[in-house]
Design a protein around this nucleic acid. Structure first.
Length: 879
DNA sequence: GAAACCACGC
DNA sequence: GACGTACGTGGTTTCC
């Protein structure tokens, strides 16, 4: 037994194993960590059990290897690495650095070759060698002094192969592994082998003939005519395969054993990273006496100059700017500091210095001076509140990150930095605390934290823009989302005027009615209870009143509206509960909810549109959500009476796209029938009913139209047969039949849907008209559910996302047009397929023409876009 | 503070 | 046959 021990780890293989073995968890900062976590548990185990004196983790480099010269289809057809995994590789390397473990990759070579080369050197120098991988190919390296440990199931469940165990388990010797692979091939690496020869046959042949060469020299002795034929027909494939699977043990590596000395890690580096990654459970496993002590941060020192006046020569025309607030509502939050980074360094400005400085305001307003920010809208609105107009915003890290991959939630400077392999920054939570404990740190710490943020911003611009260009998304980013951010900022800042007295009136009226209904419910139930509690309501309905149980939830009886509606004829209490729910919702969410957020000095509401959240490209609206103000039921619709113009003799003006998603579908699918349907101008749901039920227009009754409408709805939102069955109250089978009939009626749509799924499988993502992306890693999942969901998403996102692209572009065009025509009208809200404006009454005629014109022609599709407009003294009247 | 349930819009 | 099913936001209750 040698006293020196070399451990060689196949980094890619173990990372892949860990990624697929563990659920896709991310830490509280939104960085995916499952592969890193799995890798770490394995690493800790190895350190404990193997006690290596020399160590290295090898990674694959890039796309091509010298093997591609032999066979250009090598590893062809392989699924692209999911972005959720690729983004973990930089973190993995950080982890290895923290453990002081050497890692290495070499252009044109695979991790296998690096490992093979070092294993041979180790053997020669008399070291015990252990190779760790999940790839059976590595077994060819097994010898008396080299053992290969393969992951079995999961990540820490492993099996160690020495020559004896190999013979027992694989029935071949280590040197026969390459012959074995040459015969059986390997579909995951696209290695052909001999078709029809699997593991069993290959082992049998090798037992008889020992080597591949020997098999072919004695082909006549091979038993079985078919097998002989197959072997002789694919001789070239077999020998090429052998060449491909043979590990290069003399690769031109630039590291040697002397570089691989391993004498443990610095405890503080590892524990600090574990804390960063949220690996609380692993902290205990690395022991150390300061496990609970405050870990000093591993950050490098940052230089920042604190300014109490703005010097004339501060600005260069290319600066990264961070305007920091603690609370997330930038319409009211205090600015706690401003940080600027340019080629001369980092500079910190207290907000009083910034907003009172003439030089700062002039620079801010100067569009020729570039500003690079994270969240243009937030930065713009926050400064606007302090009377500073920010022009010349050239870069928005938030929008860039969102467009590159919307599913990477948590788009913030530290998280993005870590994803890009820049660790020299802390998360806000670490500096400010969270929840009730959140507060600004002392000035020195704050200045440094903000300096790190603006410095990161300054550094990341080039790389992010490069990624956008490579994705062909730079136009989407630069000419659509970035200008839109400022328009949205303007809308939010303008706010929507509210008739507070009207809301108060409604509240009083509702309060009385709610109390009446509540009393009636208690009367009918025979006891008082909390009517807002499903947990208390359940037993009353289903035990005391013995109503039939239709659906259960995880925790008890379901009392949702669709359940209650089915019970309406069973007991008079039900309709009262439904009414209570309906009115209660209006009262708490809308009346009281809106009253809570009205600014008392102006009676205005300032929502925030989240432009970097939805997976489809739509906006969302919070605090309050003005995209879900009731309209369907009259009772709720009256809420809209409280939304009024901000000036006397002004009106509310609303324009909405008619069936934009279905029109987009017709265009993208190039379905003749659907295009024809829209060109004819007839009612689309009736048209669908005619197709699906195979009847003439005058035979379509209300029920058929209703069903056709639900199917159209399903197509647009990508719902499943189950979803459609729920909305129509039919069985899943019947729903599936509807969908099938729809797709038969519109063969172009069917072909398009299939191609979307294919595209997702091939590229790993789908795209919209303007190149927005959505990654769908689940598209190849073996889990029926996940895959089904991914498939429906692949069909639906290009439609919904393209519609989102279009209305966003319309907003930019309309903004420009209103200015051009010198109208006072302003946009207030966007609700996915409609725009709400306010304007002086006398502009109405012009608006009717202009708004529809802009919206209908912002893009030209193969079907017309149609817009309906209306106006009135309140949002309610604009219908 | 988080999870569960419910309900509103597109 | 699985297993839980468009995208969001927000209110209330309940539990830790």
């Amino acid at each position: 037994m040698a006293d020196k021990k070399l451990v060689l780890i196949d980094g890619n293989s173990i990372a892949y194993r860990a990624f697929f073995a563990l659920p896709l968890l991310n830490n509280d900062k939104g960085v995916y960590t499952n592969a890193v976590y799995g890798f770490t548990t394995m690493l800790l185990k190895i350190l404990e059990e193997e006690k290596p004196t020399h160590m290295l983790v090898a990674f694959d480099a890039g796309k091509t290897t010298f093997r591609h010269e032999t066979y250009k289809e090598y590893k062809g057809g392989r699924q692209k690495t999911p972005p959720e995994l690729s983004e973990q590789f930089p973190v993995l390397k950080e982890l290895l650095d923290a453990f002081s473990i050497k890692h290495y990759q070499l252009n044109e070579y695979e991790a296998d070759d690096i490992i093979g080369t070092l294993a041979k050197q180790g053997e020669k120098d008399g070291l015990d060698v252990t190779v760790i991988s999940g790839d059976k190919d590595l077994l060819q390296l097994v010898s008396d002094t080299t053992k290969v440990t393969l992951t079995k199931k999961g990540i820490t469940n492993v099996e160690a192969y020495d020559p004896a165990f190999m013979l027992e388990k694989m029935e071949v010797r280590p040197d026969q592994i390459i012959d074995l692979k040459a015969l059986m091939g390997d579909s995951s690496d696209n290695i052909p082998g001999v078709p029809g020869v699997g593991e069993k046959t290959a082992v049998k042949l090798l037992k008889q003939f020992d080597t591949l060469e020997n098999i072919y020299e004695n082909l006549e002795e091979v038993s079985g005519k078919k097998l002989k034929e197959k072997l002789s027909n694919h001789k070239e494939d077999a020998f090429m395969s052998k060449k491909l699977v043979t590990i290069e043990t003399a690769s031109p590596i630039e590291v040697g054993l002397k570089d691989l000395d391993y004498d443990g890690y610095q405890h503080k580096n590892v524990s600090s990273l574990f804390k960063d990654l949220g690996f609380q459970s692993l902290l205990g496993r690395i022991g150390g006496d300061d496990a609970d002590a405050q870990v000093e941060s591993a950050l490098t020192e940052v230089e920042v100059e604190k300014l109490d006046a703005v010097p004339d020569d501060l600005f260069t025309g290319k600066e990264a700017v961070v305007v920091e607030m603690l609370e997330d509502n930038y319409h009211s939050a205090d600015i706690i500091g401003v940080s600027i980074t340019n080629e001369n360094g980092n500079f910190h400005l207290p907000i009083e210095v910034a907003k009172d400085s003439e030089a700062f305001s002039v620079w801010a307003a100067d569009a020729s001076m570039e500003k690079w920010v994270f969240d243009a809208k937030k930065t713009y609105v926050a400064l606007l509140r302090h009377g500073v107009e920010l022009n010349g915003i050239e870069f928005d890290l938030l929008l860039a990150s969102y467009l590159i991959n919307p599913s990477d939630n948590h788009h913030d400077i530290p998280a993005i930095s870590h994803r890009m392999g820049e660790a020299d920054i802390q998360y806000d939570e670490e500096v400010y605390g969270k929840g009730a404990k959140m507060k600004a740190p002392e000035a020195e710490i704050l200045a440094k934290h903000l300096a790190r943020k603006s410095a990161a911003l300054y550094k990341l611009k080039e790389n992010m823009e490069e990624q956008l260009k490579q994705n062909d998304q730079f136009n989407l980013y630069h000419d659509l989302e970035l200008p839109l951010a400022l328009i949205l900022g303007g809308m939010e800042h303008t706010g929507v005027h509210v008739d507070v007295e009207r809301l108060e009136e409604m509240r009083k009226e509702l309060k009385t009615r709610l109390e009446e209904i509540e009393a009636q419910v208690y009367e009918a139930a025979g006891e008082k209870f909390n009517l807002n509690s499903p947990k208390q309501l359940g037993p009353i309905l289903f035990e005391k009143l013995e109503l039939p149980v239709i659906k259960k939830t995880k925790t008890g009886y379901s009392t949702s509206a669709d359940v209650l509606e089915q019970l309406e004829n069973e007991h008079p209490i039900i309709s009262k509960i439904l009414m209570y729910r309906q009115l209660g919702k209006l009262q708490s969410t809308y009346i009281e909810g809106l009253l809570k957020v009205v600014k008392n000095d102006t009676n205005k509401i300032h929502t925030r549109f989240n432009q970097a959240l939805t997976q489809t490209g739509r906006l969302s609206s919070t605090d309050p959500n003005l995209q879900n103000i009731p309209i369907r039921l009259e009772e709720g619709r009256k809420i809209r009476q409280a939304f009024i113009p901000s000036e006397k003799d002004w009106i509310i003006f609303a324009s909405d796209y008619s069936q934009i998603e279905l029109r987009v579908l017709a265009h993208m699918a190039q379905d003749e029938k659907l295009i024809q349907a829209f060109n004819s101008g007839d009612d689309i749901h009736t048209q669908t009913a005619m197709e699906v039920f195979n009847v003439e227009a005058d035979e379509v009754d209300a029920n058929m139209r209703r069903q056709a409408k639900a199917v159209n709805f399903g197509i647009v939102y990508g719902i499943s047969d189950y979803g459609l069955s729920q909305s129509l109250g039919i069985t899943r089978k019947e729903a599936q039949q509807f969908i099938d009939r729809y797709l038969e009626s519109y063969p172009g749509v069917k072909a398009y849907m299939d191609s979307s799924i294919q595209e997702a499988k091939q590229k790993g993502f789908v795209t919209t008209l303007m190149n927005r992306r959505r990654y769908l890693p689940d598209i190849t999942s073996r889990n029926f559910n996940k895959r089904g969901f991914a498939e429906r998403t692949a069909m639906n996102t290009p439609i919904q996302g393209s519609a989102a692209d279009i209305i966003k572009k319309a907003m930019i065009d309309l903004h420009a047009r209103l200015k051009e025509e010198e109208l006072e009208a302003v946009m207030l809200l966007q609700v996915h397929d409609e725009l709400i404006l306010e304007a002086p009454k006398h502009e109405v005629d012009k608006l009717k023409e202009i708004v529809a014109d802009v919206m209908e022609h912002t893009v030209e599709l193969d079907v017309p876009l149609k817009v309906d407009s209306s106006f009135g003294d309140t949002w309610y009247e604009a219908k």
